[in-house]
Amino acid sequence: MTAALTPTTLFGLGGAALVGIGLFMVITHPSLLRRVVGFNLIGAGIFLVFGVIARRGAAAGFAGDPVPQALVITGIVVAFSATALAVALLRRLFDLTGRRDFDSEAPSASQSRGEP
């Protein structure tokens, strides 16, 4: 049992947990900002999985495969742009209607006007 808990296994499990938590947030939370955070959590989990794969050396067999690291860097840039686009649209929706999710008509305006 202890032999199975190598660092790569541990980080792999950590990545899986992050993906799970993020997925839960994305699916269950109505607030759009929380969903965007959830997407970032999923992304972080996936990047951790990439890291584990790099450490294991994938199918090539040598330790510290650099290819997944290069992929992660690109992935981070893409995730950053996605977050930026989502937040920009969110702000726009909030400015136009005062809504922070898809369901409410426009009720939360009074309580949310305080913070920009």
């Binding site: 993906v19 992304g43 996936i46 999985v49 294991r56 994938a58 199918a59 992929l71």
Partner: peptide, 15 residues
């Protein structure tokens, strides 16, 4: 993101 996770798994298996 689901697609990316699948990509990671495939790379881990086949390099």
């Amino acid at each position: 993101l689901l697609y990316l996770l699948g990509t990671a798994l495939l790379y881990g298996r086949f390099g």
